[in-house]
Nucleic acid binder design. Sequence first.
DNA 1: ACTAGACCTGAACGATTGTTCAAGATATTA
DNA 2: TAATATCTTGAACAATCGTTCAGGTCTAGT
Lengths: 194, 194
Amino acid sequence: MAKNAKFDRGDVIDKAINLYWEKGFHATSMRNLQEVVDMRPGSVYATFGSKEGLFKEALQRYMQLGIDNINNCRQLAGSPLQGLKKFVYQVVVEKRSSSPSGMCMLAKTISELTEENAELLAQAKQSLKTMEAEFEKVLCDAQTLGELDKNKDTKQLARHIQIQISGMRTYASIHDGNVPLEKMIEDMFTHYPF
Amino acid sequence: MAKNAKFDRGDVIDKAINLYWEKGFHATSMRNLQEVVDMRPGSVYATFGSKEGLFKEALQRYMQLGIDNINNCRQLAGSPLQGLKKFVYQVVVEKRSSSPSGMCMLAKTISELTEENAELLAQAKQSLKTMEAEFEKVLCDAQTLGELDKNKDTKQLARHIQIQISGMRTYASIHDGNVPLEKMIEDMFTHYPF
DNA sequence: ACTAGACCTGAACGATTGTTCAAGATATTA
DNA sequence: TAATATCTTGAACAATCGTTCAGGTCTAGT
């Protein structure tokens, strides 16, 4: 005996991601957000509670998309390590120009927020840890399949990948993408520590 | 036939750096800034023109402090490469907890700002390129002194250092510093590509 | 068809934003 | 000491911020 929401929650969150991702948490205004998702303030607040609440859901979904992307790359590529390389290439090179920002939204959030938004900050940190754990899963598979030496430290390698990705994305932003990213990724997977 | 400013311009900029560095450009309000530097709005605007103007000077000085720090490390250490290692250690480990932010202010700026603040964004990018050039100078010295193999590509090595620093600082932020940073820096300078 | 419950709307809230400016204060020069 | 050039002050500006809520709209169940 009621009325259904006329908007699609997933669509709204996706659009919110795009705006937050581009402008960051503080520079994104609720009014800007309301225009993009075509909702009136009352509906937004009834649905997400607050600016932080919507950002929280955006972060959560962003992370899930990232994990899905890792697994998708892994499936499309011929092997776990090839899958990781594909993922790095996709994130650092291909999506660099097409995304709202060349940086990872989670890394941007960690860089921007302080303890004044402790919950969001903690969530972004946790999400990046979760992504690193996904890297490690794939690396363990690589060991099982004999693609990666079994005496390699997968935790250390996962950390290495995480660091290289964020380092390269920042570097690419500095140079507007005019950098031999393909070669750098190639080097990353052929030289130490693999 | 006039009156001298009662504040010290350098002190004001240093305090502005600390606030901008911690909270970022957008989350820092002019009122917050005015309190910290103990100036009234009229004086601030007469001196720096705008929020962007003050940020611009803060960025400029921040970069200069960074360059000074590189040269200082290089002088204190026994050799160019040792100096670079000392600098990395200082930035990634020692100053991580004592600074307003664990991240580099320039990198934070690049991560936060968009084309809406094109000038500031361009300046932050240029400053990071300048710092990379400083790395390369030191690496060239290392080659001259025979500390670094002469067939190494110093441009590539400078880029590598830049990427590792920003990658490690982000990573340290994610894990609140609970990471074997010392070992990672050690590995960075003993293994490939040095 | 009617009613009840959920949803949508948009004006409005007080707080804060970056910024301006007229008036007062101060130190230097004549 | 008086005149002058500069600096300082703080109230005030319009704009925008995140958020609220009373009232209208719609749909599902009876």
